[in-house]
Design a protein around this nucleic acid. Structure first.
Lengths: 297, 297
DNA sequence: TCCATTCTCTGACCTTAGTCAGAGAAATCC
DNA sequence: GGATTTCTCTGACTAAGGTCAGAGAATGGA
C-alpha cells in the first residue's frame, strides 16, 4: 500500500465528495426528496414497469409504491396496469413530468458547468481530460465477476464478440465451425464454467473453463471488450477463473492460442503459464500453455 | 456552455459520487451513525471546544449536544467545562477514542487503496496523477471572495505575502516604506476596500481599492498565492474588485505596476486595461494602466 | 448591581429513507 | 380447477439526521 498515493486519493475523495454532494443535493432536489427525483429520472422518456424500476434502483416494494404515489399526487407520473399482464404496473411521465425531467437535466448540466466555469479556458480542458481519465480508471474497480449461464443473450453476445475479435485479428480470419468447439452445455456445471465480467451490469469480458476430470482443465474464450482494455481486467478475469478451477478440484490448466494475440500471450506468461508441446490439433493455434495451480495463487 | 465537456463532467460526477459514497458510508460507519464518526474525527488529537466543533461541522446546538452525549456514553470522548470560560465545554478523546480514530484512519486508507488496488501498477500512477489534477482544479471552484477588514491577522498576512513577492521579483528588491503607501484605514470603507480570496477558509489571494471621490479609484495589492496560480483566480479577483468598484460609484480604475510582473500585466491588458501616461511618481512602477468600468463587464 | 448576551442542554417535533409482514389480485403450473 | 407464484399495495415500525423553542448557568458591559 503506497502511502503517498493513498494520501492523494484521500484528498481527492474529500474534495470531490464535498463538491459533488453539496451541489447535487441542493440543486437537484427541487424541494422534493432525492428518492423521488431519482425515481422520476429513472422512469424517463419511455416509461418503465414498476418491478423493473424497483430492480434498477434497488427499492423495497412498499417504499417504491409510496414514492410513485407521491409522484402521482404531484401530477408528474401516471401509473396504470400493464396491458399484457394485469399484475404488473406501468409508469409513464405526464407532460408535467417530462418538463420536470428536462428541468432536472438542465440543472445537472449547470452543476457540471459550475465546475468548469470558474477556470480559464485552457484549464477547463485539463480538468475535463483528468476527469475522463479518473472516470475510466475508477470504473475498473467496479467491475464484478461471476459464473453465469452460457445460454443467456448476454453470454452469447460475449462469445460472439470474442469470435468477431478473432476473425479480425487472425491472419486467416476465424471460422467458429472449424477447430475445437465449446458448446454451451460444455461450459455449464459440472462440465465447465463461463465467467463474465460486468461493468454497471453491462458485460465487458468473459472467459471459460472446460473440466476433464483428473486431466488438465482447458481455458477458453478469454475476451475483454475493446473499450475496457488496459485496466487489468484480463489479469483479474484469469485469476478469478483459476480460483474457480481450484475450487472445482482442478490441478492443471492448459490452453492454446494464436500468435496474433500478443497481449494474451504476454498475460499468460506473466501469470505463470509456461509454453508446452502441442497437446491438441486446434488448427488456429500456434502456442500451447500450461500452469499448475496452487491454493495461494 | 460546452455540451461535450458537460457530458463528461456529469459522467465523472456520477461515477465518483457512487464509488466514494458507497464505500465510505459502509466502511467508515463502524455500526455508528455517520454523524458521530464525523464528529469524532473532527474532535481529533488536540480536542476542541463544542462551539468550534459546531461551527466546523455546521451542526445545530441541540443535535451536537446529543451526538457528543452518545459518544461519551460509548466512552470515546470526555466533555468538561473549559477552564477559562465555564459556559463553553471542551471535548477530548479518551484513549478508546484515540484508538477508534486511528481505526477510522486505517479504514479511510483502505478505501483509498481499494480504488488503486485492482489496477495494474502503471495505471495506478495514471489514476493518482489524474486525481491530483482534478483535486487541484476543482478547488478553484470552491474559492470564495469577500471584502474584509484589513486589520485582521489574515489580511495582514496576505499583504505581507504580497510584499515578500515583490521583494523577490523586483530587480531592485522592494521596501514597503518607500513609494506610495496604503495604510489599513485607507483600505476600509468608505476610503477603500480589501478583497480576500479564500480556499477552505485559508486566504489564497487579495486585492484592494482606494477610492478618490469622483476621481479614478486606485487598484492595489493584487496578489495570488503561489500554489493557487494558474487557476484563473487573478482574473476572478479583478472582476470581483471591479464589481465592487462599480457598486461604489467608481467610473474609472487606474493602477501602476512593475515590468517584472509579466502575468499581471498580461491580465490587465486582456481585461480591458489600456496603458496610459505616468499619472503618479511611484518609484517602483514602469507601467500605468486605466480602465473605464461599465455595468455589464 | 443589573441586564443582555453567550453557550449548552432538554424536550418536542419533523422528514427522509427505509424494512417487514401480510393481504389481495392476477397469472401460471400441474 | 386448485395450488402456487408473481406483483403490488397497505399498515406498522425503525433509525438517522435534523429543527425549534425554551431553560439555566456563566459572563461581560453599563
Amino acid at each position: 500500500m503506497d502511502a503517498a498515493a493513498v494520501r492523494k486519493v484521500r484528498s481527492f475523495n474529500r474534495t470531490t465528495a464535498e463538491r459533488i454532494g453539496a451541489l447535487s443535493d441542493g440543486f437537484l432536489g427541487r424541494g422534493r426528496p432525492m428518492g423521488e427525483s431519482r425515481t422520476l429520472w429513472e422512469v424517463g422518456q419511455d416509461g418503465a414497469e414498476v418491478r423493473e424500476l424497483r430492480a434498477r434502483l434497488g427499492l423495497d416494494s412498499g417504499y417504491a409504491s409510496r414514492v410513485l404515489q407521491s409522484l402521482e399526487r404531484q401530477g408528474l407520473v401516471k401509473v396504470r396496469p400493464s396491458g399484457a399482464d394485469a399484475r404488473v404496473r406501468q409508469v409513464e411521465l405526464t407532460p408535467a413530468g417530462v418538463a420536470e425531467c428536462a428541468e432536472l437535466d438542465r440543472r445537472a448540466d449547470r452543476v457540471a458547468w459550475s465546475f468548469l466555469e470558474p477556470l480559464p479556458v485552457d484549464k477547463r480542458a485539463n480538468l475535463v481530460n483528468a476527469m475522463v481519465e479518473v472516470d475510466r480508471l475508477l470504473q475498473a474497480s467496479t467491475v464484478v465477476f461471476g459464473v453465469e449461464d452460457p445460454t443467456t443473450a448476454d453470454a452469447q453476445w460475449c462469445i460472439q464478440q470474442y469470435f468477431d475479435e478473432l476473425n479480425q485479428r487472425f491472419e486467416t480470419g476465424f471460422d467458429p465451425t472449424r477447430g475445437i468447439q465449446a458448446e454451451a452445455h460444455e461450459l455449464m456445471a459440472p462440465a465447465g464454467a463461463l465467467m463474465i465480467a460486468r461493468l454497471r451490469g453491462r458485460p465487458v469480458g468473459c472467459g471459460a473453463l472446460k473440466f476433464h476430470g483428473r486431466a488438465p482443465a482447458e481455458l477458453k474464450r478469454m475476451w475483454v471488450s475493446r473499450d475496457a482494455r488496459g485496466l487489468g481486467l484480463g489479469r483479474r478475469l484469469l485469476a478469478e477463473l483459476e480460483r474457480h478451477a481450484i475450487a472445482s478440484g482442478v490441478k492443471v490448466v492448459r490452453l492454446e492460442t494464436n500468435r496474433t494475440l500478443k497481449e494474451a500471450i504476454a498475460l499468460y506468461r506473466s501469470s505463470g503459464y509456461r509454453e508446452v508441446q502441442r497437446f491438441n490439433d486446434e488448427p488456429y493455434a500456434h502456442h500451447w500453455f500450461e500452469k499448475r495451480l496452487r491454493k495461494g495463487s
